[in-house]
Design a protein around this nucleic acid. Structure first.
Lengths: 241, 241
DNA sequence: GGGATTAATGGACGCTCGTCCATTAACTAT
DNA sequence: ATAGTTAATGGACGAGCGTCCATTAATCCC
């Protein structure tokens, strides 16, 4: 990325591709534990190594050996702390699921109770670098893929969907009341389904072409879709930022 | 599915889940070959067995042993005809890619040259049972997943996207000329991106909840999105059908 | 400080992976 | 018929898989 790109404020999709996490220190914060034995930290390290490995080489090639090598722990740790590879994967799926709607919740709370602001908060969260990046799109894609033959992972992949759906639906329901009563239910339902599907599609698109993806364009298209259903809301932002 | 469902003509999303293909006879059609040695047929059988296995147990558990067992051929066949497991997977990815836009092309040709009809043909094709079903959504999802670390498979996953994009873009460009000239490019670009993303999202949604998915609702939402961008086209269909 | 408890190690285990090739079977051409 | 060619077989191979546990190390409690 040249200095010109910075000055011109280009789409700037040349974010460095991070597949690994920056390696946080043990930091047992509250109660001091500068110990060599720290089961909680060991679990975190293993989950992170698992996710990094999936993002980097794909779930098919993610083996116990690769995980422990990256985590820098011994072979027995997975069996000791999780009971086996399968349960480690499940724990990792749970982790990313919680991580996801933790960030969404955080953004929503800043949106007060205004339904339109809530919807936009969800969209901005979902399309943000924090949630939608090479690492996490690959991880989510992988987990969704094995969810079909792994019930315990399906739980976490579905939980995210369901929570998001209810959240959005509630906001659209409130909004729909300000419009034609006849179409009330249909309007809210269509908006919910359409928005969710669009966001899901955005993730797939990002996964396939991360360098060509523009968060600004994505946001404006989603907004345009919603403006079609709720003409008195979600109008295009002025050109500035 | 009860007799009432038939009579009432319900959404009928209770299609039997077919993960395997119905096993077509060798049928060397043109030139008679009722032979025990038939390399072309052997390849087809192996590709089909590969895809069926991926759809049924996931790509992670798709091994050479599982494939040859399903195909009913001997261990050496994969190496003999494809050179290895990796190249068999690539051939399978190519196969589904061609199968996809073969069906899309077929539908488009019935749409004459009317751009609106072309768009609707693509949508109907993409959302049809022929293309969007449990088997193929799982297969596409799997291939997209490994495309990140397998360049030769990425080719076929990207080819579909690119072809579809150009097809849709051309139709929308034509349509956009009938509207405000200033917004011409933006309108066509937004419609293209939005439609593609929606269709991709629909596949993910179908993959995750095949039994709750309604093709009718999906179609109407996509139409609604497009009507928002092209107000003089894509208006809601009358309630019939 | 010493015994009990719990975390962590790392190698051995049986098993399955994908590859490869000597062998056999089927078909073709002479 | 026979020799030559090509398709198909199936077992052997080494590598790598995930699991498990006897052993060692760290920490806690009295």
């Amino acid at each position: 990325m040249s200095i010109f790109d910075v000055l011109l404020h280009l789409p700037s999709e040349m974010e460095a591709v991070r597949l690994t996490t920056p390696a946080v220190k043990p930091e047992q914060s509250a109660d001091k534990r500068p110990s060599k034995r720290d089961p909680e930290n060991a679990k975190r390290v293993l989950i992170r190594a698992t996710l990094d490995t999936i993002a980097e080489i794909g779930i098919t090639d993610t083996t116990v050996s690769k995980i422990i090598e990256r985590a820098g722990v011994s072979r027995g740790m997975i069996h000791l702390h999780f009971g086996g590879k399968g349960m480690l994967l499940t724990a990792a799926a749970k982790f990313v699921s919680e991580e996801y709607y933790q960030e969404v919740d955080r953004r929503i709370q800043q949106a007060a109770k205004n339904p339109e602001a809530i919807i936009m908060a969800v969209i901005h969260a979902d399309l943000s670098e924090v949630l939608m990046n090479t690492r996490s799109t690959r991880i989510w894609h992988a987990f969704r893929g094995i969810a079909g033959s792994n019930a315990s992972i399906a739980v976490y992949s579905n939980t995210r969907d369901k929570r998001l759906r209810h959240l959005i639906r509630a906001a659209f329901d409130t909004l729909a009341k300000e419009y034609d009563q006849d179409e009330h239910a249909t309007r809210a339902r269509d908006a919910t389904f359409g928005l969710l599907v669009m966001l899901e599609g955005m993730w797939v698109d990002y996964l396939s072409h991360p360098n060509e993806f523009s968060r600004e364009v994505a946001t404006s298209i989603v907004r345009r879709f919603m403006a079609g259903i709720f003409p008195r809301h979600f109008q295009e932002q002025p050109a500035s930022e």
